[in-house]
Design a protein around this nucleic acid. Structure first.
Lengths: 157, 157
DNA sequence: ATCGAATTGACAATATAATGTCAATAGAGT
DNA sequence: ACTCTATTGACATTATATTGTCAATTCGAT
């Protein structure tokens, strides 16, 4: 049959990961719906968030690395955002080609508006959950991320 | 600033979700690498899994619904899998057009091989984690899924 | 200064995913 | 039998994401 021997934790983790994929996709589509009216998508929102989180303007490639996303896709979306005036490029004193990406006022407003929509939505979603459980979950996620990020190239050989 | 009022649980959940996105993408790429040698991808693997889980042959649209994925994409991948002989279509006694999808021996072998690769990999990944924490996480995921799935169309109006 | 490795943006090519439309079909209700 | 509605597969179109290549540039080592 499909049974292969696994440790008990391995079993539990296997089951959990499958559920996690579903949750991830549900969250993304919910996010898309939430901010669609602002001309945003989950992907665009996430990139605006990365720019905000950075606090200092960064080149595209750095943002992409911070997000664990691929460079070219972030570049494409940021180019779109720039055409729509949500972000602007600033000249980089340290690098002639790698321009710095900064939020425009319009971009900041769009991001703030998204966060204002997010607040009641996430509050509703969190009803009935305990902070403690969520933090446990976050701790597990963190541990898994760390392992996966360090193993990065192990199987690639 | 970016601060908008949220409940404490809402705060925690917000942070957690961001980490979760990263973990999801790390798991997918790790999965791709893991089964690449078998001619599989994470997406193909997941679909084979859905077919196995169903136990009875089902039409494509049902599999897609079970997976929470969109119909056409599942159709495309299943067509690919069929061309490569991993799945086969069976005539559906109840519906002339909606053929049933079943694993071929080759498909079963590929899936089993994937699961054999998965076992040591997931065991390694789970080292140092507690079954209890993982189950807590799975419980939270389940609660969130349920909310998101029931709200499905609330914002869509 | 000069070399070489690494990073970057641009672009092309491809792969993957999503959306909309259509006719065929099936099943429920009458 | 008949009609109405929902589901299905097929197809076309568009959107999104990935991969590879290139020359320009930066930076570290020497």
């Amino acid at each position: 049959m499909t049974k292969t021997k696994r440790t008990p934790v391995g079993e539990a983790l296997t089951d959990m990961v499958l559920d996690l994929f579903r949750l991830n996709s549900l969250l993304l589509t919910a996010g898309d719906r939430l901010v669609a009216g602002l001309g945003l998508t989950s992907a665009r929102w996430q990139i605006l968030g990365a720019i905000v989180a950075a606090e200092r303007a960064q080149p595209v490639a750095w943002l992409a690395r911070d997000m664990g996303a691929n460079r070219q896709n972030v570049q494409r979306i940021i180019n779109d955002l720039q055409k729509e005036g949500l972000v602007a490029f600033e000249t980089n004193p340290h690098h002639r080609r790698a321009q710095l990406v900064a939020l425009t006022d319009k971009g900041r407003r769009a991001f703030d508006a998204a966060m204002r929509l997010q607040a009641p939505w996430i509050d509703g979603l969190s009803e009935g959950l305990s902070v403690k459980d969520i933090q446990t979950m976050q701790r597990v996620i963190g541990a898994l991320r760390q392992k996966l990020e360090s193993n990065e190239t192990i199987e690639a050989a």
